[in-house]
């Protein structure tokens, strides 16, 4: 490693690489959302309503996600209950 590349590797990541990383994350997230069937959104609302009968909870505390694999689809339901 030359002395120049040594200094180079000390530099913080370029703004373009930060941009790329942020884009990859948001684009993957938005694609995933687009590819989910429309009922997921509605189902999420209804699940939220049921939980709210028993505990106080924010919208963001319920996450519904559908993962499509070759063989099966997995419906993932994540509920964060308050302490």
């Amino acid at each position: 490693m030359s002395i120049f590349s040594y200094f180079r590797s000390q530099k913080k990541p370029s703004s373009a690489s930060v941009a790329k990383e942020r884009l990859q994350i948001i684009v993957a997230h938005e694609r995933n959302k687009r590819e989910q069937p429309e009922y997921i959104e509605k189902m999420q609302q209804e699940i939220l309503a049921v939980i709210r009968k028993y505990v106080e909870i924010d919208d963001e505390q319920v996450k519904v996600n559908l993962d499509n694999n070759d063989e099966c689809s997995i419906l993932e339901l994540n509920v964060t209950l308050p302490e």
């Binding site: 703004s15 373009a16 690489s17």
Partner: peptide, 17 residues
Amino acid sequence: RVEEGEMLSVEDVKEIL
């Protein structure tokens, strides 16, 4: 600006889209 690391490169955009 791409060379300076200030702008997304063609390869970056191609990879994302």
